[in-house]
Design a binder for these strands. Structure first.
Lengths: 200, 200
DNA sequence: CATTTTAATGACTATTAGTCAATGACTTTA
DNA sequence: TAAAGTCATTGACTAATAGTCATTAAAATG
């Protein structure tokens, strides 16, 4: 890698760090490109060298969190399906605890906003969620944890509903419930109810 | 009521109708005040006579849908708690079917957006949701349908999570599931699981 | 009819997303 | 190593649009 390429990567990362901090403290509504570049110590135009739209950098930040969760799950191959899903839910809530309520809001806002940028593979964050969950369920079928005739598509979407509902409600209640307890309730009650009849 | 007051009301309503149509067809991101006033046939400044911020008119529109749902529920006093909640869920989905996916998106976006305007009673849409559900549950306790020691607060929030999750997922899947089936799944499985142990 | 009130106006400011031609630091090549 | 070429960076620029406000005219009042 040449010096030029290295510097470009550094600049890009400076922009992401800067945007992430602003997002955490002030939320998406207050986020503006000039603030991002000022904090990063570059000119405004530089932003548009690396990101096509303001939303793109936010999508990238959210994608970062998502990758972390994905990694955590990779290391859980031995666990059974219900436990794995509980960890999946818990990971999201942990990310929220770590990064704060504004990031959580942005995660949801980004999902319902039709303008949200897909990643370089052309996939939206939402599609990633779906794919990841589908894989977990399909693997469970392979491992004889779940019945062969389980409606994977429907189950996937119902489980994602639980995840988004849990996060949305937690944001709106401004952290009224203790995050870990909150997650556990969902893993224990609706999640189990959804899977129940298809468990082997 | 004087002519002046009547005309003012009419103007206000024209603005709301105009905004509602634009919202339905183009979504919130594309909504702009100048379009609203142009369509309504008034000058831009007129908008700000009736609404303090752009968001306020959207909040008012959503509030309108909400009132309709509230009215439907008023006429359901005889039904039991599980049925009543099923109707509650169904009403939201019906509103979505009637008003379209953009209104549904806005309903969720408005809930997670901390800038959303409260109504004249100082209540956000989200607080309305919570209050309405709490009332339903408290009434169920009075009617001996639900145990006296049911944790109303927690149940309220878990049920709202189901509602928002169901709606969010449906929007994100771009109406992939048939709305009525989709609602029924949630009323039948997670909702029942949440209430189950507190039913009498 | 004279005076007061207020809904409506549209030109105005302020903010900010996004563009682009110019620059010069780095890389390649002969 | 010097000339030629590449590309990250810049900041002044345009465009779009939220929100303001002094003015106007129509309606209400007495």
């Amino acid at each position: 890698m040449t010096i030029r390429q290295e510097n470009a990567l550094k600049t890009r990362q400076k922009l992401i760090n800067s945007a992430e901090n602003l997002l955490k403290t002030n939320g998406f509504n207050a986020l503006c490109v000039e603030d991002i570049t000022k904090t990063a110590g570059v000119a405004k135009g530089t932003f548009y060298v690396y990101f096509k739209h303001k939303e793109d950098i936010v999508a990238e930040i959210c994608r970062g969190y998502f990758k972390q969760i994905e990694n955590q799950l990779e290391q859980m191959k031995t666990h059974n399906i219900v436990e794995k899903l509980a960890v999946y839910f818990d990971s999201f809530m942990r990310a929220v605890m770590l990064y704060g309520i504004n990031i959580c809001r942005e995660w949801i806002r980004g999902a319902i906003d039709p303008n949200t940028a897909p990643d370089n593979a052309g996939m939206t964050k939402w599609q990633y969620d779906v794919e990841m969950l589908k894989n977990i369920l399909n693997n469970a079928i392979k491992n004889n944890e779940l019945k062969k005739d389980a409606p994977v598509d429907l189950l996937t979407h119902m489980i994602i509903s639980e995840l988004y509902g849990m996060m949305t409600c937690w944001c709106m209640s401004d952290g009224y419930f203790e995050p870990t307890d909150w997650t556990k309730k969902f893993a224990d009650i609706p999640l189990k109810a959804i899977l129940e009849r298809y468990l082997l």
